[in-house]
Each structure stands twice: as structure tokens, then as C-alpha cells.
């Protein structure tokens, strides 16, 4: 918690600033939206955190989101599959893609950057090819299924807003991920591999298996994310659905304390990081900043945050030495 203090402060400041500039920030509909988006992006960040902790990277997340997210309505609406079959098949597909990344990286010793960069190109191309680059959606059908992502839990007046159901899903995933990271040997292996893979291997850790599982978890969560994203927004264009999502995921994870050098991970930090990203995007809308500037603003704030944190760490280090 102490480690994430700077980030939490930044989040609170961003929230306060946005609220003072526009009090619609705390309107129930805005809060619900914010929670839903944060929950969805958290799933992707938690997935990539496994890979980053083991010292790897996954750039294919946005394209996996796109592939799963556009194929689900395509299979159900156009190919006439029943939705449970399509859902299970697509999640299996996502898992297999992760497995493939892991095997290529560990057994064939390809670089994670290259493998997943090719995944980024490949899966989006496949999604566009299969769907004929046509917008995919459920139309007015499958309201029941879509409620998984769009549903809300009434808070019976305790809170002034309702809680989107995806928040529960993401919280459950975050709890499981946090448990795996801190309470299981697997979590320690991830951190050990991220710091010193050779030492972990020489200690008898099956490092290939640990890394393959990390890539599998990452792609599977991207698949789950893709499913929930499409159920939430209902219609998507294969050419831009999920664009840059891998970068949002990685940025939130790194903001939340995952070092790109590997070996460090905080699930709480990742949740805060993902929230900050969404608050920033929300602020751009509420403050009437031209949306064309979205990337510029997000980039500048993250850069400033990273620089400030590094400076604080150095000052603290100097104080500890003195």
C-alpha cells in the first residue's frame, strides 16, 4: 500500500480536479460508466501483469480483444452458433493463442516482443478478414447475454449509484490474481524468473512452464475482456476495436508498480493504475478538451507521474543513505 501512495495521491488529485471543473463527474451515470470501463481495462492489465512480472511483454492484447470481440457476434448472429458454444470456443481460442506465444517464446526462444507484435498484426488481420471488415454486433438480440456486461447491481440507496456487474467479475479476477501472486509458489516463481531466470531454473523451477502459463493467463484474460467489451458496447468495427488496448493495459500495470524489467507486481497498484487511466480519459470529455488531444494528455500525465515517482524514490534513497 505504501508503495502505491504516490499513485493513489495522483488518482485522488485527478478526481478532485475533474470534479471541481465539472460536477457532472460524480453524477451516477458517469460514476457507473467510469467503474465499468475501469473494471474492463483492469482485466487486461492484470493479465499482462503476469507476463511483465516474469520479465516478458505481450503486445497482442488489443488484437485478441478484437478477434474474440468481433467473432462472438459474427459466430452467433451470422454463422448461427448457439452463444454458449461460441463463447467457450472463443475463450479456448484465446487460451490457445497464449499457449502458442508461450511455447514460441520458451521452446523456440523467440523474443516476446517479436512473437506478440506478430500476434498484434496477425489477429487483427484475421478478425478483419473473417468478418469481411464489416461492423459486428448483436442488434437487439441476446439482451440476456449482454446483461452480463451491461447489468448493474442495485445498492438499495446505500450509494447514490448502482454497481456495474463487470466490477464484480474484475474484483473476483483481481482477488484470484492477488492470491496467486502472494500466496502460491507460482507467484514467487514469476517474481524470481523476472529477477533472475537462470537462478530460478537452477533452483529446479520449471521456468518454461511458469512462463507459458503466464502468457496463457494473459491471452485468456484478453479473451474474457474482449467478450465483455463487445457485450458492453454491442457493436464493433474489426478495424479499430481494441486498438491500443495493449498499451493501456501495459501503462496501467507499469503505473501500478510492475517494473518492465520484471520481478515486481502489485495487483492493488494495477487497479489504481487502471482507474487513473480511465479518470484521465473521462476528464478529457468532461473538461471539454478536444478528444483529438486524448493520447497527448494521457501520455504527458503518465510521463510526469513516472518522472515524479522516480525523483521521489531517489530522494527517499538519498535520505535513507544519509
Amino acid at each position: 500500500m505504501k508503495k502505491n501512495l504516490g499513485l493513489i495521491t495522483l488518482l485522488v488529485v485527478a478526481c478532485l480536479f475533474t470534479f471541481l471543473a465539472n460536477d457532472r463527474f460524480l453524477a451516477p451515470v458517469n460514476v457507473e460508466n467510469l467503474l465499468r470501463r475501469t473494471a474492463l481495462f483492469s482485466l487486461l492489465s492484470i493479465g499482462v501483469a503476469f507476463v511483465i512480472t516474469a520479465g516478458g511483454i505481450d503486445l497482442s492484447i488489443g488484437s485478441v480483444v478484437c478477434l474474440v470481440g468481433t467473432l462472438l457476434p459474427y459466430l452467433v448472429v451470422q454463422a448461427g452458433w448457439s452463444w454458449p458454444v461460441a463463447l467457450v470456443a472463443l475463450l479456448l481460442l484465446a487460451g490457445c493463442l497464449g499457449l502458442l506465444h508461450g511455447v514460441l517464446i520458451t521452446k523456440l526462444r523467440l523474443q516476446p516482443f517479436i512473437v506478440t507484435l506478430c500476434g498484434l498484426l496477425l489477429y487483427r488481420g484475421l478478425a478483419r478478414g473473417i468478418t469481411g471488415d464489416q461492423t459486428q454486433g448483436f442488434g437487439l438480440e441476446h439482451e440476456g447475454l449482454r446483461a452480463v456486461a451491461t447489468g448493474k447491481l442495485p445498492t438499495l440507496g446505500v450509494l447514490p449509484f448502482e454497481i456495474p456487474s463487470v466490477v464484480l467479475i474484475s474484483l473476483a479476477v483481481a482477488l484470484i490474481a492477488g492470491f496467486v501472486m502472494s500466496r502460491t509458489p507460482y507467484g514467487l516463481f514469476l517474481r524470481a524468473i523476472g529477477r533472475n531466470e537462470l537462478a530460478a531454473r537452477y533452483s529446479g523451477v520449471d521456468t518454461d512452464r511458469v512462463k507459458i502459463l503466464a502468457y496463457l493467463a494473459c491471452s485468456l484474460l484478453a479473451g474474457v475482456g474482449g467478450t465483455l467489451f463487445i457485450l458492453d458496447v454491442n457493436s464493433a468495427q474489426p478495424s479499430d476495436f481494441g486498438n491500443f488496448y495493449e498499451l493501456y493495459a501495459i501503462a496501467a500495470a507499469v503505473l501500478g508498480g510492475c517494473s518492465l524489467k520484471g520481478g515486481e507486481c502489485s495487483i492493488v497498484g494495477i487497479l489504481v493504475g487502471a482507474s487513473l487511466m480511465q479518470v484521465l480519459r473521462n476528464a478529457i470529455v468532461l473538461l471539454d478538451i478536444p478528444t483529438q488531444l486524448e493520447f497527448a494528455i494521457i501520455g504527458a500525465v503518465i510521463l510526469a507521474g513516472a518522472a515524479a515517482e522516480e525523483l521521489v524514490r531517489r530522494l527517499a534513497g538519498r535520505a535513507a543513505v544519509a
Partner: peptide
């Protein structure tokens, strides 16, 4: 390079091999 994970604690390093064994 091959023996220790310098950033992990003594306890975590000492346990690493045992945690990796199938009996665990």
C-alpha cells in the same frame, strides 16, 4: 548469475527449490 535472486529475501531464496519440488 545462477545461484541467488538478489532482490528476494533470504527466506524466499532458501525456499525456492523446495517450493519447486513436486512434493510441495
Amino acid at each position: 548469475e545462477e545461484g541467488i535472486v538478489a532482490e528476494l529475501s533470504i527466506a524466499e531464496n532458501a525456499s525456492l527449490s523446495l517450493l519447486a519440488s513436486s512434493e510441495h
